[in-house]
Computed example of a mutant assay.
Amino acid sequence: MIDIQGLRFAFPGEPPLVADWSARIGPGITLLHGDTGAGKSLLLRLLAGVQAADAGRLQIGDAVLADAPTRYRAQLFFVDPATQQFDQMTGQACLAQLAGADADQALRDALVDGFGLAPHLEKSLYMLSTGSRRKVWLAAALAGRRPVVLLDEPAAALDQGSVRCLWDVLAQIGATRRRTVVVASSEATTSLPLAARIDLPLR
């Protein structure tokens, strides 16, 4: 569960995108819905602790971001889709690093197969298409065992077969409600069993 208390963020000289927002995001799939530019990516970055908020308190389990940032971030998975951080790594190395040593190997293999990733895993990420890079990160997020997963427009740039694989795995995760998954999307309806929905803008 992500416990959010009094979260606030505004760009200098502009109205706040998030103003005194408090919520609890519990196990299952939560849809973070809003049009392009509504602030979905920013809110994920705030929840991930990679964008500093102006005010507020974020907590996962017994880890408060302000007090124990390393322990807080260790409990969640988030990759900014625009990052170039992993470009020099092979897909295989990136997947192994991000998923962690305790990853669900059966699920990892199923995702590699469902996403059609096998021919690309020995290539450096900078050589891959946008969709294939996303698939590496999605496979790591879903096969890994971090209790909180933040996904920014996860179906973007994916082929239809990969989208079906993604929704199937997310539906299984949502049904068990053992992990907290936030899916930011401009699509209002999906086939996912939602535990909750958050509509932007929040103000």
Rank of each mutant, 00 (worst) to 15 (best):
I4L: 02
I4Y: 09
I4A: 03
L7C: 05
F11L: 15
G13L: 08
E14H: 14
P16V: 13
P16S: 15
L17E: 13
D20M: 13
W21A: 12
S22Q: 06
S22G: 06
G26L: 02
G26V: 04
G26P: 05
T30C: 14
L32I: 09
G34H: 04
G34L: 08
G34R: 07
D35Y: 06
T36A: 14
G39W: 11
S41N: 11
R45F: 07
L47R: 12
G49H: 05
G49F: 08
A55D: 14
A55G: 13
G56M: 05
R57E: 00
L58P: 01
D62A: 14
D62G: 10
V64L: 10
V64P: 07
A68Q: 15
P69R: 06
Y72T: 01
L76M: 03
F78P: 00
V79Q: 06
D80E: 15
A82R: 13
A82H: 12
Q84K: 07
Q85M: 10
Q88I: 03
M89D: 02
T90A: 08
A93T: 03
C94K: 01
L95A: 02
A96Y: 00
A96M: 05
Q97E: 13
L98W: 00
G100H: 08
G100R: 09
D102N: 14
L107I: 04
L107S: 11
R108H: 05
R108T: 12
D109R: 09
L111E: 07
V112R: 10
D113K: 13
F115P: 13
L117E: 05
L121A: 01
S124L: 07
L128G: 03
S129M: 11
S129K: 11
S129P: 11
T130R: 14
G131H: 01
R133D: 09
R134K: 12
K135G: 03
V136H: 01
W137V: 06
W137F: 15
W137H: 10
L138K: 10
A140V: 05
A143I: 09
G144D: 07
R145M: 09
R146W: 02
P147R: 03
V148Y: 02
V149H: 04
L151C: 11
D152G: 01
E153G: 00
P154F: 02
P154E: 08
A156I: 09
L158I: 13
G161Y: 03
G161E: 00
S162Q: 04
R164D: 14
W167E: 12
D168Q: 13
V169Y: 07
L170S: 02
Q172N: 07
Q172Y: 09
G174S: 02
A175M: 01
R178C: 10
R178D: 14
R178H: 12
T180G: 00
A184K: 10
S186Y: 01
A188I: 04
S191T: 15
L192W: 03
L194I: 04
A195S: 15
A196Q: 15
R197P: 10
D199F: 06
P201G: 07
L202P: 08
R203P: 15
